[in-house]
Each structure stands twice: as C-alpha cells, then as structure tokens.
Design a protein around this nucleic acid. Structure first.
Length: 239
DNA sequence: AGGCCGATCCTCT
DNA sequence: GAGGATCGGCCTA
C-alpha cells in the first residue's frame, strides 16, 4: 500500500559521513533513500528518485551554477556549514527548492532534490499541492502520456516536492537532517537501487562549460522522475 | 507533445 | 536593477 497516514519513521538515519563527500558522489548514492517530514498529524515520506550535484567553490574548476559559487552570503550560509543539513531557498517568488549540504564544515557543495515518489502521506501531499485528496493514486492517461494525475503530478519537480511536503525556508532551512528529533530527516529503509540515469542538469542554460556536466542522477525508468524529456543519458550501476 | 509566456519577489551586485 | 537550480496554462498541431 502507499500513501496512508503513518506516524513511524521508516528505516534508520544516515550517518554524517555519508554527506561528508563530494556532491558528485553523494547525489547518486542518495537515490532510493527517503525524505521524511514530521508533522502534527503524522509523517510525510517520499523516496528520492532524482537528484542534482552542485559543486563548491573549492573545486577545480568551480561550478558557476552553484549558489555557493561566489562564496558565503546570508542566503547560502548553510552550505558552508556541516554536512547533512537542509538548504531551502525561495525561487521565482512563488516556490522553494531543497538541497542537502555536503562536504566537511567550511567547504560548500550540495545535492538538490528534484523528485520524490510518495511513500506515506500521499493524500496529504496531494492536498498540499492544491490537488484533490487521492490525486496521487488516481490513474493517469497513458494514451496521451499527459500526467494530469498520479504521483508524478504530486512530487515530480524540485518545487513540487517542497510544496507536497510543506517545506519552506522559514521553517526548514538549516535543519539537521540526521537528528532523530528533527522535523525533517533523511533515512535509509533498505531500498535497493539498480540502474542510475546520468544526464546534464536541468535549467542550467548559460553559455558555459558547466551546462554539459553530467551531474543529474535519477532512478532509470522511474515514473516520478521530472520531465517527460531529458531522459537521455548514460546508465550506470553504483559500485 | 512540445514550445512559449507570465507570475512574483528575494537576493546579490 | 537584473535575473533566477520553476511551474502551469495556453498555444499550435
């Protein structure tokens, strides 16, 4: 079953060391792990099915697409702190995106969460998205390939997943994701990942070399990966 | 099914 | 003062 109300957190917390590494390493390894938000009424859980790596300014060459590219600012300060913390920022005046800080304290670098698969609390997620309760389990229309409903409409996209889990900068930026008392946690429930799709990042369009860097990772063939296109790339197996 | 466009406001220069 | 790590609606077909 999927989407029912749950109060128990699945699996176990990840270790700090998991995130004290290059985002390029962390991003693919994060696939299959779960993001859990503890609310007053229960727990919203989504499996991470799509990520992107953003490299810190200490890297050579540095990553011009990263928010940390020009060094610490009030907004991105979490990125320069310890690993395993949430960096939530507002974009286009209406949306939020969520990242997880990587590297040791003092170095920036992060992983952007681009898509989840609802695991628990799917109905509440659908309501948070402004869709009807039950939208996550409602069938889509395969004939036209247009996803009017279904889990894809609920948590597929970096700002959609924030809306689904009710994540905001005010409430969640800077939270430690590896603390059992935290309202937002990343956990491992033993889900085994097979094939990983690797492509360039989405929305990085400026004329620089970083446009083509293969830093987007997704569970190959998973229906909740964002975008109907952008699915071409090499496929790898994690070692 | 794919492309374009506007919304909307915060952040940094 | 410019420009977003986006989204959804509307257009063409």
């Amino acid at each position: 079953m999927r989407g029912g109300t749950v109060t128990r957190l699945p699996g176990r917390l990840l270790k700090r060391g998991f995130f004290e590494a290059s985002p390029e390493q962390v991003a693919p390894r994060l696939l299959g792990k779960v993001l859990a938000r503890v609310t007053a009424g229960g727990v919203l859980v989504g499996r991470i099915v799509e990520t992107e790596a953003y490299l810190g300014p200490h890297c050579l060459p540095p990553d011009p697409a990263a928010h940390s590219y020009r060094g610490p600012t009030p907004r991105n300060s979490v990125l320069f702190g310890p690993a395993g913390h949430a960096y939530v920022y507002a974009i286009y005046g209406r949306y939020f995106c969520m990242n997880i800080s990587c590297e040791v304290e003092g170095q920036a670098g992060c992983v952007l969460l681009r898509a989840l698969e609802p695991v628990a609390g799917a109905d509440e997620m659908a309501v948070n998205r402004g869709l009807g309760s039950g939208a996550a389990s409602r069938q889509t229309t395969p004939a036209t390939k247009t996803y009017r409903w279904g889990p894809r409409k609920v948590t597929s996209g970096p700002s959609r997943l924030c809306q689904a889990l009710g994540l905001t900068r005010a409430a969640h930026d800077g939270l430690d994701l590896l603390d059992a008392k935290s309202a937002l946690q990343v956990r491992d429930d033993g889900y085994a990942v097979d094939e990983v799709l690797v492509t360039p990042r989405i929305g990085i369009n400026k004329m620089n070399e970083a446009v083509n860097w293969p830093l987007r990772f997704a569970l190959a063939g998973h229906p909740c990966v964002s975008g109907a296109k952008n699915l071409t790339g090499k496929r790898i197996h994690l070692r």
